[in-house]
């Protein structure tokens, strides 16, 4: 399935071949990833779904050069993950907002810009633009602890967008939020994706979230962490929240659920 280019139509942003990662622990080896072959093309919205321990977060961290694979190859933007990280070619959104409490919202968004050496005027313009993109205008001078959890996570998305990386890696960004806030942020995220044309890799353990957001759903299963199914979504690009009631949507959700169940069949 690891096709690089499709007649020049789309370019691979992330390409993994036979990727494996084994953690050495005191209790012996833990196989977090085994023989993962995957291709993420430019402009795709790819969700990784699976129970905990299936290696979905680990895979995202390998792309981000936060973990080192023990076998196989992976390229990000055609280079090694380490080079991609040094080139600042991706933005990472963590499970928690991880905003610095001593910085205001605008200063938090400015953090990567300061580190990457953007000029003062450029910085201000980018802060304004990204905060507008996540609907946080007017909260520039607030501190993170003065905002709700949903607003904090939006600020952390703004921070990941501020330096215009083409690839956005999101590790269960809405996992800690309640259903209503989550629905809202999901539709916001789709709009943002349409507006910015970014490639998004999104880790989740919610089936509706994965189906609603993605153009491609990667179903994973644990022990050892591996890919069991890759589903190309036939849903249209324009997705109102009501799309979740349609038969097409439910059919994909069913297939994801079947994939997850298959991965679980040998245990419990």
């Amino acid at each position: 399935m690891s096709l690089t280019t499709d007649g020049g139509k789309s370019v691979s942003v992330v390409e993994a071949k036979g990727l494996g990662l084994t953690f050495k622990t005191a209790d012996g080896d833990v196989i977090a990833l085994s023989d993962v072959n995957l291709d993420i093309r430019r402009g795709e919205f790819v969700s990784f779904i699976g129970p905990s321990g299936c290696g979905k977060t680990t895979f995202l961290r390998v792309i981000a050069d936060l973990e080192q694979p023990t076998s196989g190859t992976i390229t990000v933007n055609g280079t090694s993950p380490a080079d991609a990280r040094v080139n600042r070619s991706y933005g990472y959104v963590f499970q928690a907002p991880a905003l610095f409490p001593w910085r205001t919202i605008e200063k938090n968004v400015a953090l990567p810009l300061e580190i990457m050496g953007y000029g003062e005027a450029d910085r201000r313009e980018r802060i304004r633009k990204t905060l507008e993109l996540v609907n946080l205008e007017g909260f520039e001078k607030k501190f993170p602890w003065q905002l709700s959890g949903g607003m904090q996570q939006r600020a952390s998305i703004a921070r990941a967008l501020a330096f215009d990386a083409d690839l956005l890696l999101m590790d269960e960004p809405f996992g800690a939020l309640d259903e209503i806030v989550r629905d809202h942020l999901n539709s916001e995220l789709l709009k943002l994706w349409a507006a910015t044309q970014k490639t998004i890799a999104f880790v989740t353990h919610s089936i509706p979230e994965a189906v609603y957001l993605s153009t491609k759903i990667v179903v994973m299963s644990p022990r050892p962490g591996r890919v069991t199914d890759v589903i190309e979504s036939p849903l249209p690009a324009e997705r109102p929240l009501e799309i979740r009631e349609t038969p097409e949507f439910l059919a994909i959700a069913h297939r994801v659920r079947e994939g997850l169940r298959a991965g679980h069949s040998y245990e419990e």
């Binding site: 981000a64 050069d65 936060l66 990280r85 040094v86 080139n87 600042r88 991706y90 933005g91 990472y92 963590f94 499970q95 928690a96 991880a98 610095f100 001593w102 953090l111 990567p112 300061e114 580190i115 990457m116």
Partner: peptide, 23 residues
């Protein structure tokens, strides 16, 4: 998580020290 965040920015030792660890 904060350290990983600084790493994703390819932040150097001193900038991580002054912007994250010392505060």
């Amino acid at each position: 998580m904060e350290r990983d965040l600084m790493r994703t920015y390819a932040s150097g030792y001193w900038s991580t020290l002054f912007k994250l660890r010392l505060p």
